[in-house]
Amino acid sequence: MKVYKYGDNVDTDVIIPARYLNAPDEKSLASHCMEDIDAAFASTVETGDIIVAGSNFGCGSSREHAPLAIKACGVKCVIAPSFARIFYRNAINIGLPIMESAEAAAAIQAGDTVSVDFATGVITDETQGKTWQAAPFPDFVDGIIQAGGLLNSLKARGVAK
């Protein structure tokens, strides 16, 4: 699957501009995803594609619309050296896979074919013939992912009714 590559500090305003927050349905969010940083993204992205970016991905506004938009586009995973903390939480809570690896994020080039194994955290760049190990999630966070998101995990524990 193909890779879209962006720089440092990709903020949630460019992931999904505020002018589209009045329509938080998946179809609308997907159709404007990354519009202010890459106008061609929404019309060319295909299910299974991967975003590779620089540090502090998803900084700025807390809008969950940002990971929702990326997920609704069919993006399989976002790989970056670091994520802004609210985006990190939101991605986990809604089930958008993210992987932290500074080495992979630096080496992978736009257009490379990349595969990811979420169970092992292994990122493989098939074009370059290289692999990297992403930082593992803490067990608590992994539990949220395994339960299918935050609300499901809280319901399973019986604390949300």
């Binding site: 807390s62 969950e64 939480r89 939101n90 809570n93 809604i94 998101g149 935050l150 809280l154 949300a160």
Partner: peptide, 27 residues
């Protein structure tokens, strides 16, 4: 995201997304 403003009065406050908000309202 600007929920961190209230640290001015010596409390812990932080921004989250909508799913965290839903969970917080419920639990």
């Amino acid at each position: 995201s600007h929920t961190c403003t209230y640290g001015a009065v010596g409390m812990f406050s932080t921004g989250v997304g909508s799913t965290d908000m839903a969970a917080g309202m419920a639990t």
